[in-house]
Write a protein that binds this DNA or RNA. Structure first.
Lengths: 155, 155
DNA sequence: ATCCTTGCAAAGCATTTGCAGTCAC
DNA sequence: GTGACTGCAAATGCTTTGCAAGGAT
């Protein structure tokens, strides 16, 4: 980082972060995983495996869809990406690892990040005894998720 | 309903509610759909299609898994059930149509309802300009979802 | 040198579809 | 009687797996 807080070489920073995270979790650093990670970071959409595949293919033409799936699994396991569920259609992947909220389009399945600041105390505000009560019942609370659902304009 | 607010024949009430909802949405009332709906109402778990199938099969041995899927689709379309997504494993179904929150076990995929009262103003509390801002960008907000995630005790 | 990862093809799981016979209205 | 629904089997879409060849440490 320089005095402006901007990395002079964001690609290299990402690479060393990735290498570290992968090694920490017992995975090897490979160019396929690096390319998948870079692409996830370059987009604000939350792409599907197929979307990752067709983009990364432009850089590494020999990459296979199976390798993309395995790379995404490694990234999730290494804690640098998250898998987002959907009722219909394929899973989507997110590499913003700070807690944040999503908007989901029920028509297209697309997901975007919300700019709204994450409120760590939201569950307590909803019900001060909620987490305590769940833990007492043996459920270990690790997080909460909130998403706004609706429809994007017709395209 | 009697003076205690308890239906003397809950099964019949469910049936007429279901018949009405299905007809309203252009579907026919069938015993397969009724059996699926009754089972969804009888459980606080949110079963998968396969779980619905194996239970309803005890009442209607000839029912097929495809019919269960079609019945669940009809119930969702008629607005008397909801499909819940999950990152791994099959979808789960919920027939509580009032807004409420969920707890999800990351290990088993199981989902339960939270007793916490639903707060219709939660998004506004999080950010008073959020919904307005999304609508201005052409996104039509229809609802929000919140779930607590974590782990049930080892079984 | 060792063990992990890749790319391919085949398998797997959840869900949907096509269709002949059956049922609801 | 008509059109929708059922049950079966086959097809589909997304994802995972097995394996021989290649790559990372």
């Amino acid at each position: 980082m320089n005095e402006l807080g901007v990395s002079p070489n964001p690609g290299q920073d990402l690479d060393s972060q990735l290498r570290h995270a992968l090694e920490e979790a017992g995975w090897r650093y490979t160019r396929q995983r690096a390319a998948v990670y870079q692409f996830l970071h370059s987009t604000t959409e939350h792409p599907t495996a197929e979307e990752v595949f067709s983009t990364v293919r432009q850089t590494i033409p020999s990459i296979s869809l199976a390798t993309v799936y395995k790379a995404l699994e490694a990234l999730v396991d290494a804690g640098v990406a998250a898998k987002l569920s959907s009722t219909d259609g394929p899973a989507r992947y997110d590499c913003r690892m700070d807690s944040h909220y999503h908007v989901r389009c029920l028509q297209t399945g697309r997901i975007h990040d919300l700019p709204t600041p994450f409120d760590p105390a939201l569950l307590d505000k909803l019900d001060p005894k909620l987490v305590e009560s769940l833990e007492r019942q043996g459920f270990h609370v690790t997080a909460y998720r909130l998403e706004v659902v609706g429809y994007f304009p017709e395209k």
